[in-house]
Design a protein around this nucleic acid. Structure first.
Length: 269
DNA sequence: GAAGACCTGCTA
DNA sequence: TAGCAGGTCTTC
């Protein structure tokens, strides 16, 4: 489900809801693999009593900064999401973990497909610069050195952290670059176009509160159960066979790096 | 690189 | 019923 803009939207909403300064009083884990390699008991032991000091994010990782050496790192994977409740604890149908916080606030982690993961560490490892912060220089350098196809490269979190399947396709369309183009074959104008497209697409999706397709369970919803406003702005993702918004040619669908990829073979070279 | 694994629910 | 899904890991 979530790429950077969706995680960032959730982070901002959790901040607004007043998570900061609350202490974790009780933890219920109903899908043990969520906290692997720890057991639910070991996880509970290390987290209960800790206070949430800040909420930050890097790439698709949400970081609950605790008053401890280790932080609580959360990866939502495909279908993870949070919601809040108060009053007596009531478990939702797909709740895999519930944190009972001081002041009577309950933080529910809902995850139908059970792919989401919690980890206790200071910071997530193996990530490149965050897509909201990356500067042109490292971006250009990596493109110049790589002979990989653009689509798999954009999805590589050690290159840029936070870009996923939706925004990779959207950025390639905005830059007018074919997803199978080799990174090393781009000239300076094309590199700049891709850099601008990636940062613009991610930024505008954050401004719009993320993207959600479909209309049912398992789709991305924010903290309040709302769909992201960016869903209206998507130009290629999920539109295979439909006309390109620029030239009208039907959009094509291929598989690259095991991911569905949609693009316009007329506009993207 | 490719393919399978991890999971469940929705849509065609 | 088959195929597909916003992500990543592991094993060729």
């Amino acid at each position: 489900m979530p790429e950077l803009p969706e995680v960032e939207t959730i982070r901002r909403q959790l901040c607004t809801a007043g998570l900061k300064g609350r202490t974790i009083e009780k933890v219920t884990i109903s899908w043990p693999r969520t906290v692997e390699p720890l057991s639910p008991a070991a996880f509970r032991k290390r987290v209960v009593g800790k206070t949430i000091e800040r909420l930050s994010r890097h790439g698709k990782w949400l970081i609950f900064e605790l008053d401890d050496i280790d932080n609580l790192l959360v990866h939502l994977r495909m279908t993870g999401g949070f919601s809040l409740s108060d009053g007596p604890l009531k478990k939702g149908p797909y709740d895999r973990a519930i944190f009972q916080l001081s002041g009577g606030m309950n933080l529910h982690f809902r995850d139908p497909r059970k792919f989401g993961r919690f980890r206790l560490a200071t910071f997530p490892l193996g990530l490149g610069p965050d897509a909201l912060e990356i500067t042109a220089r490292p971006f250009f350098q990596t493109l110049g050195k790589s002979n990989r196809m653009l689509k798999p490269l954009l999805l590589d979190q050690s290159f840029i952290a936070g870009v996923g399947n939706i925004y990779a396709d959207e950025a390639l369309f905005e830059a007018r670059l074919h997803p199978e183009r080799r990174a090393g074959s781009l000239n300076d104008d094309e590199k700049l176009a891709l850099y601008m497209a990636v940062t613009h697409v991610i930024r505008s999706a954050v401004e719009n509160g993320g993207t959600s397709l479909g209309n049912g369970q398992g789709n991305y919803v924010d903290l309040n159960g709302n769909f992201g406003g960016h869903r209206e702005k998507v130009k290629v993702y999920g539109r295979a066979g439909q006309p390109c918004v620029e030239c009208g040619a039907p959009l094509e669908k291929i598989t690259l790096a095991q991911r569905t990829t949609v693009f316009c073979s007329q506009c993207q070279e």
